[in-house]
Computed example of a mutant assay.
Amino acid sequence: MLLDLDGVVYVGDQPVPGAVEVVDWLVREGIPHLFLTNTTSRPRQAVVDKLAGLGVSSAAEQVLTPAVAAVAWLRRHGITRPAVFAPEATAAEFVELDPLQDDVEHGAGAVVIGDLGEGWTFTTLNRALRLLMSDPATPLVALGMTRYWRAEDGLRLDAGAFVRALEYAAGRTAVVAGKPDPTFFGSAVEALHVPADQVVMVGDDIHTDIAGAQRAGLTGVLVRTGKFSASDLEGDVRPHAVLDSLADLPRWWALR
């Protein structure tokens, strides 16, 4: 079982009713599970700490984030000196790769784009463009392609919108180190040590969670919490199941 976090296990700082009990059920039943998130606003340990504060027990090894996947990809390709556009806590995940200083506009081994939220300005986004245009070989690495997410005050743009802007401006195609890229889901499946067709992905995003998981050969279960909208069921993506919330997962599991 793969569980998205924001919108599925919790919304903002509040757990989805019944979610804590469902995670306890997964543990009792011995069902291998991981938490998948496209968040780039906090490192893995911060995610573990947040879950603990909500009553959900987990370990860092059970949380797969885009930053972890991106560092592994950069390391495999021998790339150092990345320019990281992400919150400070997430950028710290890249310290082993000797990241570029924030005021430098050339010489980046890669340009890594995460969710800076209100930290995005024209100057910041333009610096990312200049770094890409200074060397055609510099890869653009996206920490996920989520278009938006639901905060307590409403919808907010996520990293995907800024990645698309840079792809268009620089004529570059991003390497995606998060959902919905099949490689990201493949890394999760590999960590569970089971075949992809035996893995269920539970998410609230019809495109990033469900379509992405299905392209990777997983079962996609959509929940009506978080960013879910009734219009999600009118498009081309067809979830394998639609649940009111994560709390309904054990019943669906028993009947499937």
Rank of each mutant, 00 (worst) to 15 (best):
Arg127Asp: 07
Asn126Glu: 15
Gly107Arg: 02
Leu97Asn: 03
Pro99Lys: 07
Val95Gly: 08
Ala142Asp: 11
Pro136Asn: 12
Leu129Lys: 00
Asp98Thr: 11
Leu100Asp: 05
Gln101His: 14
Glu93Ile: 09
Asp98Phe: 03
Gly114Pro: 09
Gly114Trp: 02
Ala89Ile: 07
Ala128Arg: 00
Ala92Phe: 06
Ala108Asp: 04
Leu143Ile: 09
Asp135Phe: 00
Val95Met: 10
Ala128Met: 04
Glu93Arg: 03
Ala108Ile: 02
Glu118Lys: 14
Ala137Asp: 15
Ala110Met: 06
Gly117Asn: 08
Leu116Ala: 05
Leu100Arg: 00
Val95Ile: 14
Arg130Asp: 09
Val112Gly: 01
Asp102Glu: 15
Thr90Cys: 11
Asp102Thr: 11
Ala128Leu: 06
Leu131Trp: 01
Val95Ser: 15
Pro139Arg: 09
Gly109Glu: 01
Thr90Pro: 07
Gly109His: 01
Val104Met: 10
Ser134Leu: 03
Asp102Ile: 08
Ala92Glu: 12
Thr90Asp: 08
Thr138Phe: 08
Thr124Ala: 13
Ala92Pro: 00
Thr124Lys: 14
Leu132Pro: 12
Pro99Arg: 02
Leu125Lys: 06
Phe94Trp: 06
Thr123Tyr: 13
Ala92Ile: 06
Thr124Asp: 07
Gly119Phe: 08
Val111Thr: 02
Asp98Gly: 00
Thr124Ile: 14
Pro139Tyr: 04
Ala91Cys: 10
Leu129Val: 09
Glu105Gln: 13
Thr138Asp: 09
Glu118Thr: 15
Val141Phe: 01
Asp102Gly: 05
Val95His: 12
Thr121Tyr: 13
Leu125Thr: 13
Ala108Val: 02
Glu93Asn: 02
Val95Phe: 09
Glu105Asp: 15
Ala137Pro: 02
Glu118Cys: 11
Leu129Tyr: 14
Leu100Asn: 01
Val111Gln: 04
Asp103Leu: 11
Thr121Glu: 09
Trp120Phe: 13
Gly107Leu: 00
Ala128Lys: 00
Pro139Asp: 13
Leu100Tyr: 01
Val141Thr: 01
Phe122Met: 14
Leu100Val: 05
Ser134Phe: 03
Arg130Gln: 13
Glu118Phe: 14
Leu100Phe: 02
Ala92Val: 04
Asp103Lys: 04
Glu105Thr: 15
Leu132Cys: 10
Thr123Glu: 15
Val95Tyr: 06
